[in-house]
């Protein structure tokens, strides 16, 4: 078993596996085709309705650029915050036990089922000018969060965080504790082990979770417009722009959706490309 022979052989085997999957039973292939068509057809239908002639004009409108920029920045910040706080939360959920932890686990999934508008109202109740935390923030430091880009990030983080936490928690649970034991016998502290051994092993799950969180944040509408309001250039993200455009000019709304969609797909493809090269290294 020599190494040069095994490494190049691997992609070939995988491709073989995929080919085998493609020849799978029709009981799987048929529903798979229906699922794919169900997802793709509305997107194609949207493409058909795009007013291609006005598209270049729309793209150059400063308000579209601003909304797009704000969307990307805020969604990325929300994904970053989700990682920063979501990974530790996932760790706690995966390693602790007891009724309190079970309750916490249930609560983490609440933003997934809560209508986002209600989430926005909840955020106002907590961080609003007269909110539980918002009032002391305002009284003591003169900080008000609603109607700021920070509020956009918070609203997006609120709905995106569960995606990351649930993905990473699952990975923590299936992680082989043997590696952490090996690290301990080599003299590593628990924190050093977490950073250098555990986290790299979790990288695929963290990546998947943060891509999910990012995408959810990018499409966030209800919580954002409720908690952060709609102020062009400040809190108006693409979904808000799309919604308001729908009121006046449905064609423009479709065009804006298309832009958001293309940017999203582009970023994911780039990310995938980077990850591919990173993995091949």
């Amino acid at each position: 078993m020599t190494i040069p022979a095994t490494s190049p052989a691997r992609p070939g085997t995988i491709r073989g596996d995929e080919a085998a999957l493609g020849r799978g039973p029709w009981q799987l292939r048929l529903p798979a085709a229906i699922a794919a068509a169900f997802l793709v057809l509305p997107l194609l239908a949207l493409l058909v309705r795009v007013p291609w002639s006005t598209l270049p004009h729309l793209l150059t409108e400063p308000i579209v650029g601003e909304a797009l920029r704000l969307s990307l920045i805020c969604a990325s910040a929300a994904a970053g915050l989700s990682m920063l706080f979501g990974i530790p939360l996932a760790w706690v959920l995966a390693h602790a036990s007891g009724p309190l932890v079970n309750l916490l686990r249930a609560l983490v999934t609440v933003p997934l089922v809560l209508p986002p508008v209600v989430g926005g109202v909840a955020l106002l109740a907590a961080f609003g000018r007269r909110g539980v935390l918002g009032r002391p923030l305002d009284d003591l430091f003169g900080i008000t969060l609603p109607f700021t880009p920070i509020a956009v990030v918070l609203a997006e983080t609120f709905v995106a965080l569960p995606f990351l936490v649930l993905t990473v928690e699952g990975a923590f649970r299936t992680l082989d504790s043997g590696y952490a034991e090996a690290a301990a016998t080599l003299g590593a502290s628990r924190w050093f082990t977490f950073r250098t051994v555990v986290l790299p092993l979790l990288a695929p799950a963290v990546l998947a979770g943060s891509v999910l969180a990012w995408a959810r944040a990018l499409g966030e509408f209800g919580a954002t417009i409720t908690f952060a309001g709609n102020s062009p250039g400040r809190t108006q993200t693409m979904p808000l722009a799309v919604y308001l455009a729908m009121e006046r000019d449905p064609d423009a709304a479709i065009a804006l959706s298309l832009i958001l969609l293309l940017v999203c797909v582009l970023v994911l493809l780039l990310l995938r490309g980077r990850w591919l090269t990173g993995a091949a290294r």
């Binding site: 034991e181 090996a182 016998t185 080599l186 003299g187 590593a188 628990r190």
Partner: peptide, 11 residues
């Protein structure tokens, strides 16, 4: 703790 024992382990 294991990390403080100066014991090498081959698993």
């Amino acid at each position: 703790p294991a990390a403080a024992r100066s014991i090498g382990v081959v698993f």
